[in-house]
Computed example of a mutant assay.
Amino acid sequence: MDFPEELKYSKEHIWVRMEGNRAVIGITDYAQQELGLITAVELPGTGDDLEQDDSFGSIEARKTVADLYAPFSGPVLEVNEELQVTPELVNDDPYDGGWLVTVGIADPEELNSLMSVEDYMDYVEEHEE
């Protein structure tokens, strides 16, 4: 499994790439492997407001549907429209082509709840046992 060091991670298996006062969000390599082949992605619209820990969409795989939970609050600035046509991009390239949304950061303090790559790897290891 691949966990880029420059990213931050949530307990809901969401990665966050900081870009100034905004962040790109996606699901981790671990999450996409656990889900299996992704067949559909439901995302919010540009301009929608996310609230930390609230569901903002879902990912559908062959045998399950998983909710996506916001790692922090803020407005949706951009949505990866390619996922509507090719949702399997999340499987093929979860950290680049398979990103989900770009979100403005409403409260920088909320970012303190995110984990470093080391903490996330420990978290995954604990929950696989």
Rank of each mutant, 00 (worst) to 15 (best):
D2E: 12
F3H: 10
E5A: 14
E6M: 03
E6T: 09
Y9I: 07
S10L: 01
S10A: 03
S10Y: 00
S10D: 01
K11T: 09
K11E: 08
W15Y: 15
W15V: 07
V16C: 09
R17L: 11
R17F: 06
E19C: 12
E19N: 14
G20W: 11
N21D: 14
N21E: 15
R22S: 07
A23D: 03
I25C: 08
I25P: 00
T28Q: 00
D29F: 08
Y30N: 09
Y30A: 14
A31P: 00
A31D: 05
Q32G: 06
Q32L: 07
E34I: 11
L35F: 03
L35M: 08
L37V: 15
L37S: 14
I38P: 00
T39L: 04
T39V: 13
T39H: 00
P44Y: 07
G45E: 09
T46G: 09
T46H: 10
T46C: 14
G47H: 09
D49N: 11
L50S: 01
Q52C: 12
Q52F: 04
D53W: 01
D54S: 03
D54V: 02
D54M: 02
S55C: 06
G57N: 12
G57I: 02
S58K: 00
A61W: 07
R62V: 15
R62D: 11
R62N: 11
K63P: 04
T64L: 13
T64Q: 10
T64S: 15
V65W: 00
V65A: 02
A66H: 01
A66W: 00
A66T: 05
A66Y: 01
A66N: 00
D67T: 02
D67K: 09
L68I: 08
L68H: 04
Y69C: 09
P71D: 03
F72Y: 14
F72N: 10
S73N: 05
P75Y: 08
P75M: 14
L77Y: 11
L77A: 15
L77D: 10
E78D: 15
E78Y: 13
N80Q: 12
E81L: 09
L83Y: 08
L83E: 05
Q84S: 15
V85I: 12
V85C: 10
V85D: 15
T86I: 13
P87R: 06
E88H: 13
E88V: 05
L89P: 01
L89D: 04
L89M: 14
V90R: 02
V90E: 05
D92C: 14
D93M: 00
D93W: 07
P94I: 06
Y95Q: 03
Y95M: 04
G97A: 14
G98V: 02
L100I: 10
V101T: 12
V103H: 04
G104A: 15
G104E: 12
I105Q: 11
A106D: 12
A106V: 07
D107R: 05
P108V: 06
E109K: 01
L111F: 02
L111V: 01
L111C: 03
S116Q: 08
S116M: 06
E118H: 07
E118R: 06
E118Y: 02
E118I: 02
D119S: 13
Y120C: 05
M121P: 02
M121E: 15
D122L: 10
D122C: 04
D122M: 13
Y123F: 14
Y123M: 06
V124M: 08
E126Y: 06
E126A: 11
H127Y: 07
E128W: 13
E128V: 04
E129D: 14
E129T: 11
